[in-house]
Amino acid sequence: MSGARDTILGSIRKSLKRGPLSAEQAARLEHRLKTPRANVIPARARVSGRRRTDLFVDEAERVSTTVARVADAAGVPGAIASYLAEHNLPATLKVAPDPALKTIPWSEKPVLSVVEGRGEDGDAVSVTGAFAGVAETGTLVLLSGPEHPSTLNLLPETHIVVLRRDHLVGSYEDAWALLRVMGRGMPRTVTMVTGPSRTADIEQTLQLGAHGPRRLHIVLIGGAEDDAE
């Protein structure tokens, strides 16, 4: 469809009353793209340390995400087991093949049965890591890849995210900066998740669990100890 492409670009230029950008103008745009500049960042997002953690937890809870805090990876199986028991959920976990999750001593809680893989219909509970948590709105940033199949975020009834406290950032811009530092470009999907799936399409009444998970639970590692900072 090169005909259509040329027509559309031509029509845009005609309306803007100019030809293609000059080399100098094009270089200026390229510079704007290469050195991304943040726009206004809300003051709320510019916090650190304990205040950032508190903000993240508060904002997450406002959107019906639940948060449990544990001191270290060893505390994760216990926290998950008691969450599942409390909500009467099956103790069968579909866990992302994430190296960070492999260090969790699952066997210390024999009631949990752990299977690795992608998400499938009928999965009750998934466990994944997260690239970052954004305090501004209690938002999780999840990257797709071999260690994090995106179906795990979508198909199970309950999604549990294991997040390290030092992966918390203030603003979305902070998360983009981290992503650029990694230097691996854009993953296939970057999904920002703010609470469990919901709909208000029927008479504007809010219902959780429209197509995605009905429950979103975060186990935050490292929250309990270093609150002093």
């Binding site: 904002e59 199949p149 995605g212």
Partner: peptide, 22 residues
């Protein structure tokens, strides 16, 4: 009136090698 919608996905190209889905 939400602070953020629940799912905001930045989707870039088709499935990559090693991906389990997409």
């Amino acid at each position: 009136g939400q602070e953020m919608s629940v799912y905001t996905t930045f989707c870039t190209g088709p499935r990559r090698s090693g991906d389990a889905d997409g």
